[in-house]
Design a protein around this nucleic acid. Sequence first.
DNA 1: AAATCCTGTGAAGTTTACTTCACAACACCG
DNA 2: CGGTGTTGTGAAGTAAACTTCACAGGATTT
Lengths: 216, 216
Amino acid sequence: MTPVLVVDDDHELRTTLVEVLEQEGLQAVAAPSADDALIRLQQKSFDLILLDLVMPGTDGMTAIPLIRRQAPPTRIIVMTAYASVQNAVQALQQGADDYIVKPFKIDGLMLTVRLNLQKARFCEETEAVDLDKIFNVLANGLRRQTLQLLSRQRQMRFMDLVRALEIEDHTKVNFHLKALREAGFIEQTTDKMYELTTNGQRAATCLSYICKSLES
Amino acid sequence: MTPVLVVDDDHELRTTLVEVLEQEGLQAVAAPSADDALIRLQQKSFDLILLDLVMPGTDGMTAIPLIRRQAPPTRIIVMTAYASVQNAVQALQQGADDYIVKPFKIDGLMLTVRLNLQKARFCEETEAVDLDKIFNVLANGLRRQTLQLLSRQRQMRFMDLVRALEIEDHTKVNFHLKALREAGFIEQTTDKMYELTTNGQRAATCLSYICKSLES
DNA sequence: AAATCCTGTGAAGTTTACTTCACAACACCG
DNA sequence: CGGTGTTGTGAAGTAAACTTCACAGGATTT
């Protein structure tokens, strides 16, 4: 079911990859060039793209931001030769999600593919959340820090939070905690520990997405 | 210079890894257990941690959030056996940055290490990106719509925007356009057309990313 | 040339967000 | 028991964000 797009100018590798992916129960489509891939992306959405970096015409590196723009949630795995591994770093900075070094074994490839598909599924775990609410909450630095803290620590007491945030006035923290609580992002256990709700975890995930994407 | 911490209960592997890393010009320290690693982290900060998942005592998985708590910017690479690869996914969800599958070749390991160190360095540089600015801009629905419109249309005149947004008072739109301009997200061409800047495109991408993930 | 639309500025007003202050109940420790 | 730390609430004040209004120069149309 999960559709994968294979972009490589090498005809043999391209068809081999499609065969392998289909044997593993994935739906795979091949594109011989980046431009062709972009056209396919307009017609249909893919969960994952295997992208060769070195290609005639539009090369993989320049294609990455274009793909990201066209289909933001798609996982992009770039394929690069061992000799030019520093390109992988650049590709990740451009917005790719992972890399694999050529030549690779089928096992290694499938491992990377499966991991990224699972990651993608993890990313999707979101329902009806109000964008305004999310951004209003995330618009405040203190609240963002709080979400991140709770995301890491799972549970924290009030004073732990206050000290971790390095705020002198505890009532200020309380104000923002109230905002977070009313937005449904955090809640308190019976013993007064603060923790993220499911929606709060979602919001924290959004936050880390944005931070991640700013890295590139 | 860049210090690496190797955490593994296997004595031989631990010392081998330290040797290899030092040969490659990195400063490496070994810890035989997660608890030991946490103590070392209190005394000294590390750029990168190689963490075995399966260990007696505190295992690697539970150690990840604890490490994150102690030293947020540290890159965490987990080492996992091929048979238990799904653990890698869980580890990434827990806050690890990358994984490597055992058994691995030295080359593969060093590749992963170098990539993550480079990423860490890159993250440090861009830490200066002003999240407050981004969220303040994105916190407003009208501004979000504007970004999305410009992302689709590339260029728009003022009145086109006003009508597309269905706002009766054009000065209101102007106010938000000014905010977007001052945040460096949009700019005007010589013939008064509004368009996204590079940062604006980035912000729009973030936005559509989130919207996409909220749809599903 | 007058009317109308486009594009914009700046100030005044309103609403919302945030901070600070004063106070209080409860737990825990010596 | 009295002091100290924790965990709050609500009101008052301040700052920031947003809206509305009054106005104006330039382009286009009629």
